[in-house]
Simulated scan of single mutants.
Amino acid sequence: MTQWPLSDTVEEMPPGLWIRRGSPPAMLSMHRHDDVEINLVLDGQLHYLFGGQPLTIREGEIAVFWAAQPHGLVGSRTGDMCWVHVPFSLFLSWGLPEAQTAPLLSAQPLITHAPDLAERIARSAERWGEEVGGAEPGGGDDDVGDSAQIALLEIQAAVRRVLRTSSLAHPEPSADGPGSVPAARLRQVSAMAQFVRDNHRSPLAIADIAEAVHLTPSHAMTVFRRTAGVTLGDYVTMCRVAEAQRLLLTTPMTVTEIAEAAGFGSLSSFYAHVSAACRMTPREYRRQGR
Rank of each mutant, 00 (worst) to 15 (best):
D43K: 15
R225Q: 15
T165C: 12
W66L: 12
V162G: 00
L104C: 08
Y271W: 06
R225P: 01
Y48H: 12
L105D: 01
I258L: 04
F50P: 01
C278T: 13
P54L: 05
F224V: 08
G140P: 09
V84W: 00
N39C: 03
L168F: 05
D234E: 15
Q149R: 13
A272H: 10
H200L: 08
L105C: 04
A220V: 11
L247T: 00
G95E: 08
R290D: 04
Y271M: 03
D234V: 06
D198E: 14
L17E: 09
S167L: 03
F195T: 05
A175W: 12
Y235P: 01
W4S: 02
R20F: 10
V10Q: 01
Q3T: 11
A26P: 03
M280F: 05
S29W: 04
L42V: 04
P15W: 08
S147R: 14
H85S: 10
T216M: 11
Y48M: 02
Y285D: 02
G79L: 00
A277M: 07
Q45M: 11
L28T: 14
F91H: 02
P97Q: 02
R226T: 13
H200T: 07
G265A: 14
S167T: 11
S268W: 05
E154A: 03
S124H: 11
T216R: 14
L215Q: 14
T237N: 10
G138I: 11
L42N: 09
G139F: 03
V159D: 01
P97A: 02
A157F: 06
A210P: 06
P282L: 00
A122M: 08
R161I: 03
P171T: 08
T9C: 04
E211A: 14
V196Q: 01
T222R: 13
Y48I: 01
V36G: 04
R201D: 13
P54T: 03
V241W: 06
G79A: 03
A102P: 00
A102V: 00
E59N: 05
Q100H: 07
F65I: 05
G133M: 07
D43Y: 11
W83C: 06
P25A: 12
G22Y: 04
I209A: 04
H47Q: 10
T256W: 06
H113R: 13
Q53R: 15
G233Y: 00
Q45P: 00
H170T: 10
I62Y: 08
F270Y: 12
T231C: 07
T9P: 00
I206D: 05
R120E: 12
I57L: 09
G51K: 02
A175V: 13
A212S: 15
Q245K: 07
A169P: 02
R77W: 05
A183S: 09
R161T: 10
L267G: 03
G72N: 02
M192E: 03
P70R: 10
T231S: 15
R32G: 05
G289I: 07
V41T: 11
L28W: 10
G22H: 04
P203Y: 13
P282R: 07
W18F: 15
P87T: 06
L49W: 03
R226M: 09
